[in-house]
């Protein structure tokens, strides 16, 4: 391109949005797999084995999960680095922003701020989670996960992660839509209100789903606490063994 401005600002802008979008899609999909626990330990077990490639190779390769984890982490890092540019760069800017928001009390500006704050928190929370996933890919399964969540007290991390990531994701998608394809037509304001309502509905859905599965993991972990460390065998359940 001729001239002094390079094509990079454009590319970077797309990359920021694209990385965010991919992450959202990943997290949303991940929620469905991860909450397979709601359908029972067996369902969850089968999902984990599927991701370890058992149906394909005949035997599980947990390293596959590590690989995906590394890929996702890379994406997160890329996204975070790009997004970090948008953070207030100095305390002066931060002060101006706070004052501006305080006076204006403008909903969409507040949403963006929520995204910044959750993004900042995510940086740590996601790192912790992905560190676990990448280093102990084999330790994913109905009991392993439940033990981690209950006996190793990871539920605290997950509860925080759950709220922050879904706030960040739902707002992110709404903002992506407004950024690239805002409503046009006769009544754009009404259209925008509908989009925002959709955003809140999605958020509510995933939070409910996440809470339900987290509580299930916690309950499972509590039941399994005395046998923590033991791995799940297909066809058996904690509840079933208790009843036996």
């Amino acid at each position: 391109m001729p001239g002094k401005l390079s094509a990079w600002p454009a590319r970077v802008d797309v990359l920021q949005s694209l990385s965010g979008l991919l992450l959202v899609l990943f997290v949303w999909a991940h929620m469905f797999f991860e909450s397979s626990i709601l359908l029972g330990e067996d369902a969850m077990y089968r999902v984990t084995k599927m991701f370890e490639g058992e149906p394909l190779f005949g035997k599980p390769y947990p390293l596959l999960v590590s690989a995906v984890g590394i890929a996702v982490l890379t994406l997160v890092v890329v996204h975070a680095v790009l997004a970090l540019r948008k953070f207030p760069g100095s305390s002066r800017q931060y002060g101006q922003l706070r004052q501006h928001m305080g006076a204006l009390r403008h909903p969409d500006t507040t949403l963006w701020y929520v995204q910044c704050v959750t993004g900042f928190l995510l940086f740590f929370l996601v790192s912790v989670h992905l560190y676990t996933v990448i280093t102990q890919p084999g330790n994913i399964g109905p009991y392993a996960s439940a033990d981690r969540i209950w006996s190793e007290r990871f539920w605290i991390v997950y509860a925080l992660l759950l709220v922050t990531v879904h706030l960040h994701a739902a707002i992110g998608v709404y903002r992506l839509a407004m950024k690239w394809y805002p409503p046009t037509g006769a009544n754009p304001r009404a259209h925008r209100r509908r989009r925002k309502r959709a955003m809140w509905c999605i958020l509510a859905f995933f939070l409910t789903l996440g809470c339900a599965s987290l509580l299930t993991y916690m309950y499972l972990g509590y039941q399994h606490a005395d046998r923590a460390g033991e791995r799940y065998q297909p066809g058996t359940t904690v509840l079933a063994t208790e009843e036996d």
Binding site: M1, P2, G3, K4, L5, A7, P9, A10, V12, D13, R85, K86, L104, H106, D108, T109, W112, R175, M178, K179
Partner: peptide, 26 residues
């Protein structure tokens, strides 16, 4: 378009906008 890009193609231009939408609302 390329000439317009030279005017707004950076963070002080269109890529600086973070879609806060205060502009549209006020």
């Amino acid at each position: 378009d390329a000439e317009f890009y030279q005017l707004v193609g950076d963070e002080t231009g269109v890529f600086g906008c973070m879609t806060l939408l205060g502009c549209e609302d006020y």
